[in-house]
């Protein structure tokens, strides 16, 4: 961050709220003015002619999964209808405490939705990549793996060896050569995902 950044505290009035300036992340609007709600640094982001005021606190931000985020999660329970998992990372930030989430049968893959069977897609202990769906009435986050790049990235065979993907529906154990069905993610060799993988592998 720059040395000359603008420091603000919660409750500090930043600007008038009009056609040019609008309130963004870390700010709130009250009676036509924009106030800060975090202690941190003011950023002005220009977006389609609008100036969006944002406040970013230093140190680690509190990250909460929001709609559209790519998350890394660990499956812990599977049933006929859904798989339950704990979100471990959002984007490339590792969370201190995990969030509960659920993947319904309908959101496992794009095609042949009605033929999906959870136990052929995930097993407890699998590490998956998924996208966060809009938050509805339900009490936990809903995830979707209905994209080629999403699905299981790390899985262990019944004998406990890390498996290697052989197709988009199967993974193979290198020791026993047993093939197990999974909804495999096509991992794009991009910096972001490899970062997550290395972090996760250290944890496993």
């Amino acid at each position: 961050m720059k040395e000359d950044s603008l420091v603000c505290l919660p409750g500090q009035r930043l600007s008038i709220c009009d056609k040019i300036y609008t309130s963004g992340q870390g700010t709130y609007e009250r009676k036509g003015y924009i106030y800060s709600m975090l202690g941190g640094v003011v950023d002005i982001v220009e977006k389609n002619g609008l100036k969006v005021l944002e406040v970013h606190s230093n140190g680690q931000n509190t990250v909460i999964p929001s709609q559209g985020d790519i998350v890394t999660a660990e499956v812990y329970i599977i049933t006929q209808q859904h798989a339950k998992c704990h979100i471990k990372c959002i984007g490339n930030t590792v969370l201190k405490s995990s969030f509960r989430a659920i993947i319904r049968k309908e959101y496992v893959r794009v095609t042949e939705k009605d033929k999906v069977e959870i136990y052929k897609s995930f097993r407890p202990g699998d590490i998956i990549l998924a996208r966060v769906l809009p938050i509805t009435e339900a009490h936990s986050y809903q995830l979707s793996t209905a994209e080629n790049e999403l699905g299981v990235v790390i899985a262990h065979s019944e004998h406990g060896y890390p498996m290697i993907p052989v197709s988009w529906t199967e993974m193979q154990c290198p020791k026993t050569l047993v093939k197990e069905p999974r909804k495999v993610a096509k991992v794009v060799p991009e910096n972001m995902t490899t970062d997550i993988l290395s972090v996760l592998q250290n944890n496993v």
Partner: peptide
């Protein structure tokens, strides 16, 4: 504030 919890005011 240090924890980055959004607050209306001090």
């Amino acid at each position: 504030v240090e924890a980055g919890v959004p607050m209306y005011d001090i």
